[in-house]
Simulated scan of single mutants.
Amino acid sequence: MPIDLIEALLKKTCFSDYAKRALVDLKTFSRFSKNLLITEFDFRVVVDFSNKHKLLSTEKQLTVGYEIILDEKFLLEPVLLTENEIDAKVYTLFAKAIFSSRKNLNLVYEINIEPHGGGGSDTIKTFERLLSESRLFVCLLDSDIKHPKGPLGETAKHFALYPKGPNRNSRLEILNAHEIENLIPIPIIEHLFAKEYLGHLFKHANPIKFKKYPDHKNGFLVEQAKKQDMHHGDTFWKDFYHLGDHTYICAKLNSLTEQTKQFLENTSTYKIQEFLDKDANEELFTISNIIASWGVKLRRRLS
């Protein structure tokens, strides 16, 4: 809130003692908060006091009419919708770990967002229900792509009518990778499966190039890679052609998401940061920043 507006309101005699304390507190905090949030985030919510029913999204801003924010659903913590709840929890834990490294923000703010599973192919139904409500939410979808030239999976295709990015009270994002397992940093995988064979992908000089496509649950063989390249008229997997057809490019990493969730829950954010690299995990950092932008809240409350 602009300082001059706060000062004008403080001169009014119609406010309760609590409202006055809130304004005094806001005046003290406003300059610091505004500069910090504008510097650190590229998305914000702005309340429109001239059009009470307005609800308009752009890439940088959600403009909301003042009557809409009086709806209790709008004031609830935002929802993070993914195809299942474990994925949503893992994304949230990564977002909190990455957010905690931003010391200037972490002292005053925290992330408060509700992980929610959509039930696989039924995610579209939950998405449309949330769209019809006033509650803010972010939806992250697996692309299920198996090759750089491959198509989106069936669940992602259900969302073809909805634009990616901000749209009214939501933001829709489709991964540029097969699924959440493909975004889990390699150092974490190597830590969790230290005694197991991971596949030749993890020995490659540039594993990040290839990691976003294999099915980490079922594993991915050289034979399958050759068939995919042939189907798409490409040589994306040629670096592995010299290996035997039944050699794993990516081994079966059973319960990777579940184990990652346990690791994140039981490890300090400081320690988790040792496994993260912004350049190597660019998409994970981008997603975490989106979650932070929608779920950021003050740590303290005015008493």
Rank of each mutant, 00 (worst) to 15 (best):
D142R: 12
H116R: 07
Q61H: 02
V79M: 04
D17V: 05
I180M: 14
S288P: 08
E274R: 15
L23R: 04
P163C: 09
N104Q: 14
F210C: 09
R135Y: 04
E173T: 11
L201I: 14
M1I: 10
K217T: 09
R300G: 00
Q262F: 07
K271Q: 12
R168L: 12
R21I: 06
Y162K: 10
F29S: 10
L243A: 01
N106L: 03
Y241P: 03
A205F: 15
D48A: 03
L264V: 07
L26M: 14
E40H: 11
R31M: 01
L130Y: 04
L302G: 04
L221I: 03
T260F: 09
E154C: 05
G153V: 08
V90D: 03
D71S: 13
L9N: 10
L298M: 13
L198G: 05
K12T: 07
A156S: 15
L192E: 01
L75Q: 15
K149H: 10
K195L: 12
F193H: 06
K195F: 09
F32H: 13
I98N: 04
A95N: 10
K252V: 06
S293V: 01
T235S: 14
T39N: 11
V79E: 05
L183Q: 09
L131A: 00
E133H: 13
L26F: 09
I188H: 05
F263D: 04
Y162R: 09
T13I: 01
G150A: 09
T28Q: 13
I145C: 10
I86P: 01
I291V: 11
D4S: 15
L37M: 10
S134H: 08
K89L: 03
F263T: 08
L10R: 13
